[in-house]
Amino acid sequence: MLCQECKKRKATVRVSEMQSDGTHKEIHLCEECARQYGISLKFSFNEVLGNLISSQLGIPVKDAQAKCPNCGLTFEEFQSSGRLGCPHDYETFKANLIPMIERVQSGLRHVGKAPRDVGRIYEREQEVVRMQKELDSAVACEDYEKAAEIRDRIHELRKTARTGDAGESPELRDTEERP
């Protein structure tokens, strides 16, 4: 049997790789390819993700054409790139993403660090998405006056996000000590 990786040398090593869904996949490799096996791009976690989502995980995709109201990405586009378009995609594609995340992660609930202002950040993000939907329907109805108004409001709302020009707070000056 020839090595499944280089397809030139004789396969002498059998590698059993555990898939994210718990099943095992066997691969026959030559010694040289086997040595690189553990670090080869072809088997890297992120790279195979695109394939995992639909095929290997066997999760049926629902409504692959649905578009995110905030960034315009469809789930189909995500499947080919493996990259989401905006934070709201996690909400838009929830039905498709959550089963996939569940299989590759160790749970569905974040238990780590959170930013101090988490509530405020989250609410504003939701508000931007809500207004983006309004904007889309205004454009669809050709109500450009209203659309312009909403666009300005979104712009204003984004401005309330801290982007570094809010001035230096006193406690920041006390934290100059760096490791």
Binding site: F45, N46, L49, G82, R83, L84, P87, Y90, L97, M100, I101, V104, Q105, L108, R109, H110, G112, K113, A114, P115, D117, V118, R120, I121, Y122, R124, E125, A161, R162, T163, G164, A166, S169, E171, L172
Partner: peptide, 23 residues
Amino acid sequence: ERLDFAFSPTLGYLTACPTNVGT
């Protein structure tokens, strides 16, 4: 302190690739 990072109370820090989401 100076930047608001995209964060969901359930999923944690939101990242372009879903394999990084959470911490």
